[in-house]
Design a protein around this nucleic acid. Sequence first.
DNA 1: GTTTGACCTTGACGCGGCGTCAACGTCTTT
DNA 2: AAAGACGTTGACGCCGCGTCAAGGTCAAAC
Lengths: 294, 294
Amino acid sequence: MRIGELAALLGVSTRTVRYYHHQGVLPEPPRLANGYREYGMRDAVALARVRRLVELGLSLDEARDVIADDRSRELPEILSEIDSDLARQEREIQARRTRLAKLMKRAEEGTLGPDDTASPALMDFLQVIEAPASKSAAWDRELLVLMDSIPPAHGGELFSSTFESMATDPEAMARGHDFYRRLDELAEAEPGDPRIAPLAAALAEYSMEHLPLDPAPGSPGWDPEAIEPFLEDLTPAQADVIRRTIALVTEGAPMATLPFDRPDPLRPPPAYAALRESSPSPGYAPRTAAAPGW
Amino acid sequence: MRIGELAALLGVSTRTVRYYHHQGVLPEPPRLANGYREYGMRDAVALARVRRLVELGLSLDEARDVIADDRSRELPEILSEIDSDLARQEREIQARRTRLAKLMKRAEEGTLGPDDTASPALMDFLQVIEAPASKSAAWDRELLVLMDSIPPAHGGELFSSTFESMATDPEAMARGHDFYRRLDELAEAEPGDPRIAPLAAALAEYSMEHLPLDPAPGSPGWDPEAIEPFLEDLTPAQADVIRRTIALVTEGAPMATLPFDRPDPLRPPPAYAALRESSPSPGYAPRTAAAPGW
DNA sequence: GTTTGACCTTGACGCGGCGTCAACGTCTTT
DNA sequence: AAAGACGTTGACGCCGCGTCAAGGTCAAAC
């Protein structure tokens, strides 16, 4: 057989066969006088074996090792590793399909806006809020969507569990809208305005009442300064309210006693990029770092 | 915010943020006097949107298009495309996990040999055959494993459906072993040996009786010459038996009337490489070519 | 003052499993 | 003798970044 026949026989490309030679996963056959490779049954059997291993999910390196160690003690380990990896991928695919299904339903019903890829729980909550005329509400909305996009290990979803209970609590919603109104009124106030302190106090009380202030174990806590960049989009008096609110909350809440542990920004988690990788990475435990969320 | 803060906030690396700038999926923010990028809330929101789209499975190119077309009419199409792609991946993962489970069970029980990654149906059949002393049986075994590795659309698995019925038919098994014995006896015979013709006739009859000779619709049929490379591992007289058998079978069977349609060896199917691709390829219908199996 | 050390900048290479030219030789068929 | 279907080696492309390399900037610690 020549390379094209062998490749066609097993349903791969000639490039693949040559690549396998190059990678040492398939031995080079003898050459004819013209330089052509000449394959026999043993080569076909060897290639078939490689293909079966690859189709099981082994990398070429792993396949080479398994083939080299003829009494491979590694194969079972590799297989179970691949299986657990596949199980993880399956779960992740199902989670994504669940989200996709909700999105597609929404796409059929009406029009879907730029934030509609946020988590379904938050989307429902945002629909309940509905304060289109308020700039404070718009600001808060952006902040909520942002937090919702933060991976769970980073402190995101800290609040998502409470959205449902808040949405079904008319009094909480009314108070929330009142806060928006009062913040809007402070738009052109000066930093020393007397309405600032009471509003911050009420907001802090409201927050401590409705938000789960005990961070998840292992969670890094807040960085109070992380909010600063977002205060740029408010007026000075409004920003003061938020700053004071945070100060009150971090003062009175147990989480304030946690040492602030700023995560290493140079090594964030690979997030969903790891979805597709099935090869064993050097440091195999999929580390998930943490980031400050407010 | 500087780039490290933004990246940590959303749980990605600074390299990722800069890459998104380079790909045009995230606009470049203004620079400070020292050249540092300075990010605000709008940038964080934009990055969060990109991340959500990417986590849904969109490629960066797709995300860029969706973000550019603000009233994107493409998003629903892309979503449903991704969903069907994910559904396919899910099925394939489940199929692989099924095979892996059987393999791992076998690995626990006893030792698993080099062919044990073949299909479970064939493995069971090979265990029933068990003719360790016969060279013909070894040859046939290799051929069977080879055929089993050939993707279905290439004519592989043509026989796998009959393995079970054959394995439970004692008479068929006895006749099979008798063929091995008679072939072994011909090891050192000369090409003109009088036992060749009767053995070929009996083998042909046996084949037509037990093997599904009607190829699947769309299947390309055999290339009788494709067997030649494998006959090199037999002695001349044995090879003659096989050649005559094939001639008799292709003569008497309906499949012989099919025109031989050699598949294009330059464009074989991507096989399992396509498992991971979720991007829409130019020619999207996953073509599956066909190859000669004997 | 200076020296860490943590951050920022651009640029280039690496990864896996091949696909896809390019530039050329070889063999068969017309 | 020309075409065209094969073979050969070699190099680049892909995707979504990780990972150096070789610097510049800035605040805190000595």
